[in-house]
Amino acid sequence: MALLDIRNLDLRIARGSELLPVVQGVSFAVEENETLGIVGESGCGKSLTALAIMGLLEGSAVRIAGGSVHFQGRDLLTLSPEERRRVMGDQMAMIFQEPMTSLNPVYRVGDQIREAILQHRSMSRRQAHDRALDLLELVRIPDPVRRIDSFPHQMSGGQRQRVMIAMALACDPKLLIADEPTTALDVTVQKEVLELMRGLQTRTGMSIVLISHDLGVISETCDKVAVMYRGRIVEQASTSTLFSNMSHPYTLGLLGSIPATDHDVEWLDAIPGRVPTLDEAVPGCAFHPRCFAAKGSCRTVDPGAAAVSPAHFVRCHFPQGSSS
């Protein structure tokens, strides 16, 4: 049984009297000790999917319109908030792009880590303090005994993200959801933070859902990948399969858009046009107005997810370079 199993998740956003679909029929599973990457551009629904898993959509304009989110065998969407907190408890944690907005600027980082620990564990303040020190050491903050009394603004962006990771790991979660955790960081710091996350996974066996717009980050970090476009997963496969046999024209377009650093390319294979806005209805496949392979049926019929090979799914009438 997968640790996290999402089936046909549908999310809608309230716009006036209308409910517009923002995530449609999203299904994926994450096994223990596995890292799943969700890649896509802004507005594709990757962050909303994460917030739905965490139960953080309450009070927002986004409604869960259908589907299931099974975590350790129980559907979180059928539970009341209290039951949900009990089932999820300290087993799931999330980190965000900009650690400064998630950390409280007027409390010392040590206090904030201790609070995260004491929310879920009954122990003395002394024990919580020691645990906080251990966590800072675990995320390789230099000189933790001194840094535990620092305020967030006294730390660099990379150190703040390490503190966020320390807080997320406070109760040994089974699942860590990381939403663009390195996007605000410099490339050299990004490398350190990604290495840290991989190392912690090896130690603890936790599962990770890594959300990113950066195919390079996904490629280096994840076991499998889901590519999202306009609320749907358009391609899903193991990382090695995806990169050796990309099938969806959008995935190919994303790859072609990235300027290489190891060789010279005269012109980038950019995807033409732009992502349609939420209220622009696109009949047929949502990608067809930008797709180089679009033909008649793409304009009228929305393709379902089909297997190109076992465990490689693509939502396209004319998948590219299929190995058959």
């Binding site: 490339v187 050299t188 990004q190 990382t239 090695s240 046999n245 650093t261 190995s323």
Partner: peptide, 28 residues
Amino acid sequence: KRQIFETPRHAYTRKLLDSIPRLEKRIA
């Protein structure tokens, strides 16, 4: 450009280039 990217001389340039996440490019 080619000298910087292919035969960087300074340690910091090498560190920068080394930090770029690599895209997996396997030929099936």
